Structures are given as structure tokens and as C-alpha cells.
Simulated scan of single mutants.
Amino acid sequence: MAADMSSGTDLQEMVGSIPFTTRDDAKKIMKSTYNMNAVIIKKLDSYDDLNFYIKTDDNYDNQDEFVLKIFNKVLSQNTGVFEAQTELMIRLQEAGIPAPVPLKDINGKLCSLEHFKKVTEDGVTKEADYMIRLLTYIPGQMLVTAKQIPLDIFYNVGKTLAQMHNAWKDYEHPSLNRESYDWNLLSALKTREFLHLPKEEWQQNVSQSVLDRFESEVFPHHEKLNRGIIHGDFNELNVLVKQSADGSVNSEPQWNLSGVLDFGDCMFCPYIFDVGISLAYMMLTDIEDEATVCKWYLSGYESVIKLPDSEKNMIVTLIATRLVQSLLLGLQCYSINPSNTYVLSTQEKGWKALRKVWGMSVEDIQKAECPKY
């Protein structure tokens, strides 16, 4: 089956439809839709939606911290996506995996379409309808901010991903069939049209080589790979960790995985793609040896679900492909909307990681030490 090289329009549409809502809007929503008084509101980084951290002066099921999510105009038109995401989060909660869950509004709904209006500085009135959702808040720090991360964390991240796959394995929803979605790894080949965006020639050359290998070694076999619902973006920003001491004198704090975030990229896809996607972003954390981190991560995943050797042999190509996809799409998103510098978050570490990963082999991962493997 030949690779579909047609370019989708969803990326440009999504970037151009980021909500224009403000902190004041968020405060009003909390009162009118959830009957809660927001006393602290902080805007959180986001790719193409708006997220607000909310602290209230009253409780909802003994909680006073929340995340208010306002979806972009494109996603807001697809109610099926919200149905699927709600079910996926609930299934994780039932499986004991720490993930946010949606909360009902005053009308008993888990999400609602709200109308917003804004008058620009030049007097133009803008109006739009955005889907909103209130989520439970999970404390912890993003994995990317942790220093001197023990290898056990990567074992646990891999194990958690496999547990998520198991929790979702019997679930189906038509909205999760997203073959043309720009962040589907199968769509990475479409980023060839952005190969001119990196400034350095070596960046363009390595990216081309990675995409060529993905097209020749992975794409022709993707339909035969084990598949189901995947997270699609289990990255260093969507994994929360926290430190805890064991209570003994002079004990060193231990890092533990405390939360899993963001289900906006969930889709029906090969499981090994999810492993490669997640490992790509683990390469951006505070690590010393890429092959060792891969070995510990795979060990954690395989403590729950065994991977065929044929799929594990693709892992370096998959990691590199996701890095290229993220780097090139980030540059393209920035060219569309230069005010959103968050889309460049992968650039500095990403190119360095790509260079190292592309010099790594499957044999390097196999030779790496991991007592748990």
C-alpha cells in the first residue's frame, strides 16, 4: 500500500481556531456553568486549546482545585471526540490509573458548548462557540522538569502505558479512527513538505533520512501490527511525577508517577507506535544514556504486554520519526501563529535528541543494562 502523501488541512485549521477566551471568561464560566467561585485562575501552556488552572473558595466533591479546558473551534464541532475521551478517562479511573476525570456542570452534563464574544482593539466583534469541560486536578510536576530522574521512573512510565492499553483494549468509537490526523504517526510522511523550515542543512538531511526509513521499513507493514486505542501523546509534559520519602532518617526522596494527562490525541493505531511516540519525548528529559532509558521503558511495558521482536526492531525508527514529526509540525505551527511560542517547546532539546537517537541501534538497546528485563 503506497503512502498517502496528500496534506491534511486540520493542522492549519486547528492552529487558526485557538479559543480567544480570557481569564475573566473562565471566571464567569465557573460561576454560570459550575456554580463555583474561582479565586485563583492561571493560564496553562497548551498547543491548540486553552487550559486554566482553577482554585475555588468552595468544594466540589471535597475538591477545590480544577482544570478548565476550552477546546478549539474545530474540535468543538466533533461531539463524538468528547464522548470517547470521557469514556477513556473513566476507564482509567476504574483501572486505578491516576488520570483526571470530567465533572458534571449544573445541568448534569460532562461537557457543554458555550458561546463567547470578544471586541478587538479595532472595534471588531468576534464570536465563537467552544466546547468546555471541567476536570479534576492532579498534583505533581511534569516529568520534563524533574532532575536526575531514576531509571525506575521510565520503567513505570512504560508499565503505565501498557496498563492504559489494557484498560482500553475492548473499547471502540468511530471518532477514534483518525488515519488522516496530522499527529497520527502514519501522517509523519506529510511533514516532508516542511523540510525547508529547519535552519540547519543537517537538520533537513537527517529528517529526510528518518522519513525515508519510516516509509520503507514501517509504513508497508503497519496494517499487520497489533493495534487498539493508544494515548498518542504520552510525553514528558503529560506525565506527572512527585517525590516522596520512605520515612527513614536521611532517606533520599523517591520519584513516583502521579498522573497521566491529555487525551486529545487518542486514536485507534498500532500499540508500538504509542511506545515509540512516548519514548521520543522521554529523550527530552534529564537522562544520561538514551539506549538505557529505552531498555528500562520497554522492560516496564513488557512486564504487562509482551512485544514481538519484529515490532521492537522498529523502535529506533519510530522514536526518530516522532521527533521529526514533532519538530517539523512545531515549526509549521509557529509559522502560522508566531504568538504561540509553546509550539516550539521541542526544538532546542529535540534536534539534539534526534541526532543521538539516529546514531543509536536496536542492538544498543538490547545490550543496555536493566536488572528488571
Rank of each mutant, 00 (worst) to 15 (best):
S6F: 09
T9F: 09
S17F: 02
I18F: 05
T21Q: 07
T21K: 00
A26P: 01
K27L: 02
I29Y: 05
S32D: 13
K42S: 06
K42I: 00
D45F: 13
S46Q: 05
N51T: 06
D58A: 04
Q63P: 13
E65S: 05
I70E: 10
K73T: 12
V74F: 09
Q77M: 14
Q77F: 09
N78F: 12
F82V: 09
E83C: 09
E87S: 10
P98W: 06
P98V: 06
L103I: 04
G108R: 04
K109W: 13
H115I: 05
K118C: 02
D122V: 05
V124G: 03
K126P: 05
E127A: 15
D129F: 14
I132W: 00
L135G: 06
Y137N: 06
V144Y: 08
L151W: 04
Y155S: 02
G158K: 06
M164G: 08
A167Y: 07
W168C: 07
R178T: 03
S187F: 03
R192D: 01
E200S: 09
E200A: 12
Q204T: 12
L211C: 07
S216C: 14
V218I: 13
H222E: 14
H222T: 14
E223Q: 15
R227A: 15
I230L: 13
I230V: 15
L240I: 13
G247N: 10
V249L: 15
S258V: 05
S258D: 11
D262C: 01
F263Q: 05
F268I: 15
C269D: 13
C269I: 06
L279T: 05
A280H: 06
M282I: 02
M282P: 09
L284H: 00
T285V: 04
E290W: 01
T292G: 04
V293P: 09
V293F: 11
E302D: 10
L307V: 11
T317N: 04
I319P: 04
I319Y: 02
G330E: 02
G330N: 00
C333T: 12
N337H: 15
T341Y: 13
S345Y: 01
K349E: 03
W351S: 02
K352Q: 03
K352D: 00
A353Q: 02
V362M: 01
I365C: 05
A368P: 12
C370P: 07
C370F: 01
P371E: 08
K372C: 10
K372G: 09
